[in-house]
Design a binder for these strands. Structure first.
Lengths: 208, 208
DNA sequence: GAATCTAGATACATAACTGTAGCTAATCTC
DNA sequence: GAGATTAGCTACAGTTATGTATCTAGATTC
């Protein structure tokens, strides 16, 4: 009869999903440091006791939410367009960075308490798609096919794209545009692979 | 006669310095989100009322502390050693990143509340030494002297070094070693300037 | 349909921080 | 030395979050 009981009572998976969503929204809004059980519970419209039955700490809720996040889409390189595939992989990264999970991760990284509680396993799982996989997958693919010397695919080189995107996100707070992504590929990544524009015009025909 | 009055009473500059130091230590320990007037006051060993006389919010204290921070040392490029100067400028950046101010900045960046209160002016001031000046100064210097085509010194290229160092700090949480800094310069920055390790066409296999 | 879970509502004591206020006394200024 | 500042001390009411406990009623299981 009560009009607040219009909504059916949630249980199990459904409830947990709602809580996970709530904590991700919450952390984006207030930051990892100001997360509270109270705030999460309010946003998920569930009593705090429900939270305490499963987690002991707001950070635990957050880490659990991240752990159950869908893995990031992997770039699927073609066979002929290294440049285009690199740009697409960076675009994927930007997309992820602006998703709730992406924002949550960056909130966590500089929070001492969260960082301390973040396990190696979670770090791997969450970062598999962030810490270097976006362009690395693509680069490895083309290195295997001899588009450039595999020896040039060092850890530093594999990180160039992600690093520059991250820096742009931090400095500008806004997603880099297409031209910027293209500039990263043309001016930083490709030169590092010995595929600079001026040196070997034949390698990348008809670019620009 | 009270033995807690051994220390002389602080005023003005001296007191403010102590508070600035306190808030920087505090933010490193608890994060920007968990800063409190109480915590800062305790650490500075001053009553809260002293804080409220000057600031209205813990974040204000933090931003003020950053504003009064000494500016970062500028790299002073020589005339002949681009590579060495680049490495040195990155080393400067690493040093700064591990200083209290550097840590405070990274704590602020992902905290929604702090970020919202951070003025354009402060951002400029604090970031002048972080967001791209470290290597840019050096690069500009050598570009002006014709060591490489000035047109290659694009925003993206000027950011490569700082971006890779930042990424390493985030991923590893530890300062990059000398070899890593050297690798950044050799494998990413110099190639982007067309100064790759002498690339003769034989070394690079043809496409496909 | 009965038994069993478990979400949802509510209450409560505790703790931390907030913002303000009033007083005392050290330090600076003249 | 007198007067003006202002740090330091203490108190207090109000707010928010914590963690636990108790009860109810919706959903699931058999």
């Amino acid at each position: 009869m009560n009009n607040r009981n219009i909504r059916t009572r949630r249980r199990g998976e459904e409830l947990i999903k709602a809580i996970h969503d709530a904590v991700l929204e919450e952390v984006v809004e207030v930051g990892a440091g100001r997360l509270t059980m109270d705030g999460i519970a309010r946003r998920a419209a569930t009593p705090r006791s429900t939270l305490y039955r499963r987690w002991s700490d707001p950070i635990e809720v957050l880490l659990d939410a991240l752990y159950h996040q869908h893995p990031v889409e992997e770039p699927t390189p073609g066979a002929t367009d290294l440049r285009g595939d690199l740009i697409r992989s960076l675009r994927l990264m930007v997309e992820w960075a602006f998703s709730p999970a992406g924002r949550a991760v960056s909130a966590i990284l500089t929070d001492p308490k969260s960082a301390a509680l973040m396990s190696e396993a979670l770090f791997e799982r969450v970062f598999a798609g962030r810490g270097g996989t976006f362009t690395r997958t693509v680069l490895q693919h083309y290195a295997d096919r001899g588009h450039f010397p595999a020896a040039l695919l060092t850890p530093v080189v594999a990180d160039i794209g992600e690093a520059l995107v991250t820096k742009h996100l931090i400095d500008a707070g806004a997603p880099p545009g297409e031209e910027y992504l293209a500039a990263i590929v043309d001016q930083a990544i490709l030169p590092a692979l010995g595929l600079g524009p001026s040196r070997d015009p034949d390698v990348i025909p008809g670019r620009d």
